[in-house]
């Protein structure tokens, strides 16, 4: 049983993949934007941080679900 729970939690945490890819793309685009328009750096980094915080939510959901699986099913 415990093994299955661990596997389930692990699969739930896989949701972090999406967040990683999303933040990677966002950061890449932000770098391009800064390279193109260095004077707008402040605005771009602010938007980037906000976007990252929003994209991170997916990973956080995965984490919460994994934690729930572990705690609820134990």
């Amino acid at each position: 049983m415990n093994t299955l729970i661990a596997i389930g939690a692990g699969i739930a945490v896989l949701g972090g993949l999406g967040a990683g890819i999303g933040i990677g793309i966002a950061t890449g685009k932000a770098t391009e934007a800064v390279a193109r328009q260095p004077e707008a750096e402040g605005k771009i980094s602010k938007t980037l941080i906000l976007g990252c915080a929003l994209a991170e939510a997916t990973a956080i959901y995965g984490f919460v679900i994994a934690l729930m699986i572990i705690i609820m099913l134990q």
Partner: peptide
């Protein structure tokens, strides 16, 4: 739900 879970998960994580 998303607001709640985002805040909760972030702090917990």
């Amino acid at each position: 739900l998303s607001l709640c879970m985002r805040l909760f998960g972030n702090v917990l994580g």
